[in-house]
Design a protein around this nucleic acid. Structure first.
Lengths: 145, 145
DNA sequence: GTGGCTGCAAACATTTTGCATAACT
DNA sequence: AGTTATGCAAAATGTTTGCAGCCAC
């Protein structure tokens, strides 16, 4: 499984003429393991924990590349300054943003697909995707309050 | 009408012990006139166009205050760095984000309300609000392509 | 070997903050 | 008059870029 993911990345890169490098593998592995929503700072820190050192700038460049290749995407949920990154995954899902602690979780379900079906925005706007974010308070923060 | 809006702001501020100042009126007027989604830079520039000068820092502070008072809110749609501000309005609406030019439009409709009705995220998450963003290409950019 | 990629450092963009002064009440 | 809010400047934060050397191909 681990190996498969790595091979997928190599293919994705090499097929389009990009090189497979240590920073790119490292960022990929971290995003893969994290399952969602890390800041660049967090990605870099987690890479560091594994013994490898990768420069912030390289992480930024790598994430931009991944975005370009359709492998990852950024979002800026909440009020925090920093962008948060996750690997692209095919499942329909939306985000649960806790207004207290700022954490972002996923919620998988058909809701987004159903929205998209019923969507008619008119005005000649060509719909390419739908993003749904639910703001609220997560169970942990409710327990703490 | 103009006057009414200004009186509303004064009440909102004075009721809670805040002062009614030139920068606060200026920011309010600009947001009111713009009907949505200006960066802080844009707000400041538009104030400048009316002859008044207000410092960037004051615009930031004013917008934060408005947010605290529930009068305005920020969003960070798209890939741009800068946050965009709009006045809070009671209508249910969601955002149309053009992936080409980056512009954000509103779309009013019952969709968001209907989503909220059918929403069951489980996990003890307390839902407070729903944000829907539709990504795509606006009619202008489609025409230009 | 060579061209793309990295690390480093410096630039850039956005937002926040400290402090003396101005201005709202 | 008393204090809050402003303007200015400096700092903090997040992201991008130029360039010399390194490494994947």
């Amino acid at each position: 499984m681990e190996r498969m993911e790595r091979i997928e990345l190599s293919d994705e890169l090499r097929t389009r003429g990009y090189r497979v490098t240590r920073p790119r593998r490292a960022v990929w592995d971290v995003l893969r393991a994290a399952d969602g929503h890390l800041t660049v700072e967090q990605v870099t820190a987690r890479i560091g924990e594994t013994g490898t050192e990768v420069d912030l700038a390289s992480v930024y460049r790598t994430l931009s590349l991944f975005e370009e290749l359709g492998l990852a995407r950024a979002s800026r949920l909440g009020d925090s300054e920093a962008g948060r990154w996750e690997l692209m995954h095919p499942d329909e899902h939306f985000h649960l943003l806790c207004e207290v602690c700022g954490e972002v979780d996923h919620h998988v379900g058909s809701l987004v697909a159903r929205i998209q079906e019923h969507l008619d925005v008119g005005h000649g706007f060509e719909v390419r995707g739908v993003e749904l974010t639910v703001r609220g308070v997560c169970s942990r923060c409710r327990a703490a309050a």
